[in-house]
Amino acid sequence: MTAPAHSEAPAGHGAGSGEQREGIVRGLRYIGAKLLTAAVSLFAVMVTSFFLFRILPGDPVRSMTQGREVTVEQEQELRRQFGLDQPLWQQFLDYCAGLFRFDLGVSYQYRIPVAELIGERIGPTVLLAGTGTLIAALLGLVLGTRAGWRRGSATDRVNTGVALLLWSVPSFWLGLLLIVVLASGAGWVPGLFPTGGMMTPGTTGLLDVALDVAHHLVLPVATMVAVVYAQYLMIMRSSLLDEMGADYLTTARAKGLRDALVLRRHAVPNALLPTVTLIFLNLGQVVGGVILVETVFAWPGLGSLFYSGLTVPDLPLVQALFVLFASAVILMNLLADLVYPLLDPRVRT
């Protein structure tokens, strides 16, 4: 973990501006490499999504017109409308051009532009995923720290056990159980929380709407947190354990610092760094969690939209959401890569 010698070798008396410039060049090269990687990843996602969804079994025009009498001319017209009569390479070029103009095609089942649908649904998803991730991260970091600092204690064993158990539970099942126990109201027990949706229809007034949404948010967020926080706990715990043997902690103790201070000022800041990166790296799993939780709780977000698109199948919709989910995770990872050297001087090599 010490700074490698070769990068500082030419220092000595000739230091100053030359070395500084070298540092900037190295920094720019790092940023450039990360940007390039992200760009390549995004392009790969675009290509994959295009070809993946072109091999879907079943004719989209058939599923659109299911249960209705249509003439051959009408079918041709639909085909032309959705660009399905063009050669494949033409469709691919149109698709790429469309992505950059946020023209994601028209949904087969809703018959409105996909971009519009996503615009409507993105708010609830950001609210749910944001709240869930934030609470899960805080809970995981705090509990992971406590478990790691007192390794082998009852606190550690209970926390690790609960985390492993929750990690093993399928999130959708946990959501269903919460609905049965806390929302459906079995027998004489009243339902404490709504079973699904985001708000009660007919609610007006800013405060009332906010409270109603918060009420609806409790169970979905609880499910998300339960599934996601376990990972953060385990990561934070092992990251803290990695720091435990470090000399600087012995020094801090030798200075006569109280245990709590050694933990808070010395161990946690160092253990936090790798954990934060891993939280960003694990965002893909948050996306998966959002899809399941929204499906179970009928939360009007992108996840339930994805699910509804799967059953039809609604090609432009599923394709656009695939690109959106993947790009979101790639961009968040890029952000983590770019911010990390600012936080942790040890990796600025």
């Binding site: 390549v40 079994p57 893909g284 799993q285 996306v287 993947a326």
Partner: peptide, 24 residues
């Protein structure tokens, strides 16, 4: 490793669902 990292970044459930949806 570039390919591996790319797969590592993609949301696993989204990819699995997409694959399962396009096959029989």
């Amino acid at each position: 490793m570039r390919v591996t990292d790319w797969f590592l970044v993609l949301p696993p459930l989204v990819l699995a669902v997409a694959l399962a949806a396009v096959m029989t």
